[in-house]
Design a protein around this nucleic acid. Sequence first.
DNA 1: TCGGCAATTGTAATGGGTTTCACTTTCGCT
DNA 2: AGCGAAAGTGAAACCCATTACAATTGCCGA
Lengths: 344, 344
Amino acid sequence: MKQVTIYDIAKEANVSVATVSRVLNNTAPVKDSTRSKIMRLIDEYQFQPNALARGLSKKETGTIGVILPDVTNPFFPEVFSGIERMARDMGYTFFLCDTIGDYERESQYLNILREKQVDGIIFLGGRINLSKCKPELVDEVVETANRIPLVLVNGDLPGTSLYRVITNESKGAEIATQYLIDSGHRDIAFIAGNDNMTTTAQKVRAFKRIMKRNGLHVSGERVLYGDFSMASGERLMNRILSNEDRPTAVFCVNDFTAVGALKAAMKAGIGVPDDISIIGFDDIPLASAIYPELTTVKQQMDILGATAVQVLHKLIMKENVKKLTVIEPELVVRESTLSRDAIQ
Amino acid sequence: MKQVTIYDIAKEANVSVATVSRVLNNTAPVKDSTRSKIMRLIDEYQFQPNALARGLSKKETGTIGVILPDVTNPFFPEVFSGIERMARDMGYTFFLCDTIGDYERESQYLNILREKQVDGIIFLGGRINLSKCKPELVDEVVETANRIPLVLVNGDLPGTSLYRVITNESKGAEIATQYLIDSGHRDIAFIAGNDNMTTTAQKVRAFKRIMKRNGLHVSGERVLYGDFSMASGERLMNRILSNEDRPTAVFCVNDFTAVGALKAAMKAGIGVPDDISIIGFDDIPLASAIYPELTTVKQQMDILGATAVQVLHKLIMKENVKKLTVIEPELVVRESTLSRDAIQ
DNA sequence: TCGGCAATTGTAATGGGTTTCACTTTCGCT
DNA sequence: AGCGAAAGTGAAACCCATTACAATTGCCGA
């Protein structure tokens, strides 16, 4: 069962392959009668051009590689969904590469994508700490970016200047903190992620900054470091609750952590939001799936993805783009926070 | 910046491209000195073979297309993750195609994947009712399956005989029902999905069968039809609760629905599992993220994915495979169900 | 020293498109 | 009618690998 080729169509239509190619790509005028004859044959033979051959000669494949650390983490599918929606109409298809957080695999995938001649790469750094990874990988990424358009989403490689699309996480943390304070909270704890990651550092800094600006003190034990997981949220919340001097609100570095914290509170019989308010970050679907629904800072993940595509597309088209694009997060007030005005 | 080709390497090494190709693919003996000389050059020039060219001549691309209805639904990333883990070591890369439940797009993607010369296709039917879709699409899928190895996961196209990997959903529903009964429940409600979908029909049938087998009656109003969404779970649970005659347990067609139901109960001040037990289906991560953690029937999504890959791989290798592979689900008891033994 | 087989290596065809360049028609206009 | 421009088309090179087939070399035992 051999594949029908452009040659078969050409022969059948008594024209050259060039002409068939022209009607296929609309790249030059073709007489109407010729065109329709060819189209009929294409239809009849169910001819489908071989994308490999096309890619080989055009040096463009209409394919984009998306690298992410974990498909199973709801954050990424949301971003991917934004990428897809935006790029599909541009005619792109996607290689999805899940590195399961393994730098080794990142580098492997980078190679594979180059070999497959993708038109561009979107690298979802997400919560992974790119700044701590092996220098070889940094080189590898930079090297790749020199040859293929590459956009980093929510990540950074210090010492390099790659194209990036990021959420303004500092701003988000500021908004969340200020919101809690405006709601009357005075004693607020922050459950952070790994302390060596920039996303944690940024948020901690923002948190302290706003507290200070409002004349509030942040004692050392009110900032707890974990690892972004639900489990760590649960564990750290338990630590907070075991203390007789309990804060009235807890700000979590991400929704996963917040959900863990929430669970810990419920299990301990502490009412949320009545006894303690909890606020998360990201607004993954999970946030509104639970009870009480989580107040959180929404990262517009679909927009993050869509924007990354736009930037990448411009790079591919060799148009001018800003190196850095910042997406603003927004507060989503739901049920896990309560105003303290009454009780102050 | 022209790409380094096998010709460049060959010329530099004073050998023919054939020889270079041979060391690249280890397809014939090459003298050690020659080999190492070539390897050194490959390294030095950072030569990477062009996968398009290779695919074109080998007629195999090491690429698999995965079609699914919604990346954003946690069920699918889980399956995808299983696919990836299994297939990566076999050297495959994946095109991820999200149809957002649109039949039009399914057909588009099928075409694109054919053009891109994928080695095989994994079609995640999931909760989408393939049996109701347009006949053209059925033809399209069958037609594709005739040309390219194709495996259907958790789906079916009546009137066709495609290779399939499915979860034994009937069995799962039986187990769940029996478990509730064994726990002492006598009055159980079932919140189903759309009534025209096979997955719903199968589970409803299994539910009634087991109830009957245990001498229990299922009144008409104890089976409610929704649409698999959280919202419908919430709505239908409210309906159940508005009735003064309330069941002691509710079995939900999937976890999403169950989470909605759980939320409705909590909001209504009905304790779970103290006042009412709830059991779900799938065991998506969400199930164990909420409080109380959801008792559910686990679909082994990673195994589903991994198995699909194994079947597909055998098809690609033209080995013999069974048309149908069934994965057995298993009960996961957590916190949302309670034994009624005491109160009976 | 010679035939024969294995080990190495090269030549050229092949896979299926796109595209440059050149050539032939066909028009529009003067 | 005559001319230049535009339309329409084809031949052949090119993209970058793999591979069938052929050729050469090296080493063995006789």
